[in-house]
Write a protein that binds this DNA or RNA. Sequence first.
DNA 1: AAACCAGGCAACCGCAGCGCT
DNA 2: GAGCGCTGCGGTTGCCTGGTT
Length: 355
Amino acid sequence: MGRVPCCDKDGVKKGPWTPEEDQLLVHFKVSKFIEPKLKFEEKNMCNGFGLDFGRQMALLDALLFKRPCLLRCGKSCRLRWTNYLRPDIKRGPFSPAEEATIVHLHGMLGNNPSKTVSVERSLYGDKPDLGYKRFLLILPDIHELWAYMASQLPGRTDNEIKNFWNTHLKKRLTSIGPKLQISQSSSSSEPINIKCKSPSARHMVQWESARVEAEARLSKQSLLIKPTSTAKSHPDIFLQLWKSEVGETFRIVEEKDGKTCESLVSDTPPSIKNESVFLDDTVSPKPFKTTTFIDTTQEQEDTCKPNEDKMTVSDSIGSNEFADSTDTELKLLLDFPGGNDMEFIGEESEFFQLP
DNA sequence: AAACCAGGCAACCGCAGCGCT
DNA sequence: GAGCGCTGCGGTTGCCTGGTT
C-alpha cells in the first residue's frame, strides 16, 4: 500500500515498506532498542558516527547479521516504527468511546495550529496586557492536537487519529452538524452532567464552553455586523475573546486587583456555567503542555511572577465551583508533574541511560 | 468481466522549534 | 550570535481497495 518504492539520489529508499524491511527494523529494535531509548540512540549514533539511523542499521546488519542493508533514512524508520511496527499499536476500528474522545478533544482544541502562532504574534505584536497572558495560561498547546489525542488514546497514533478524523468523523459531523447545533441551543438551559473527575479538566471544559459560546456569539455578530467590525480587526480569536464579554470577566478581576487575578470563571454567565460537553470518564486528560510563550524574563518585571501567576490562578478557583482544586492540580494542568519534563516517562527513563 | 470512482490510509513533505557546535 | 542538523508536528499525496455501473 502507498506509494511506489523509489530511491533518491543518495540511495536511501523511500515509499512503502516491504515485510523484509519491517522485519529488519523489528529485529533491530527488539534485539536491543526500544522506543524511548531509540530516540537517544538515534541521536547519539548519528552524532557519534556521522550517519543517520537508517544507515546505522544498515551498517550493523551488514556487519553483525550479514543481512541485506536497510537503506532507509532515520526519519522513515522512526515513522514506520511509531506508526506501524510499535508493539503497543492498537489496530482495528475505533471504538465508540474512542470516537467520542476524538470528537470531544477536537471540539475543545480545534485543529488549526496557526491559532497558537497568531496568539504569539498578537501577544508580542499587539502587546496585550499581562491579563491577556494569564488568560492564555489556561489554554492548552494546540500545536500538538493530534499528538495530544494520541496520548489520550493508548495504542493509537497521531497519524491514525488524524486520518480517522479526516476520513470519517469530519464528514459525519459535517452531515449532522446542523442537528447538533439545534439540539444544543434547545437544551442550553438544562445543565449537562460534567463527567470529568479532575477539577482541572472541568476547568478546561468550562472555559471551553465559554469559548465556544463566545465564538458562536462572535460568529452571530459577524453576520449582523459589517465586515469592518472590531472583531475583524483582530484576526486572533483569543485576542477577540480577550476583548469580548468572556475576556471581560478576566479583565474586570485584573482591574479589581492589580496584583492578582481573582476569579477566572466565577463571573461566567449562568448559561455558560451549567454548560458542558461530554468528556469520557474513563479518559481523564493527562496534563496539558501549556503554551510556551510565557516569557519568564518579561514576567519577572511584574509583581506576578510566572509561578505565582499559576498559584494565583489556582487560588482564584477556590472561590467558585472548583473549590476543590488544589495548587497541585492546577499545576498538573499547567505543567508536567514534578517540574521535570521527563519525569512523566517514569520507569522508562532508565532507557535513557547508557548501557 | 471490465471500467470507473470514491474512500481509506501509509508514507512523505514542509515547516517551526530546539539543541549543539 | 550564527549556522547547522535533528525532531516532532500537521498537512498532503497518491496507491490500494472495494463498491458501483
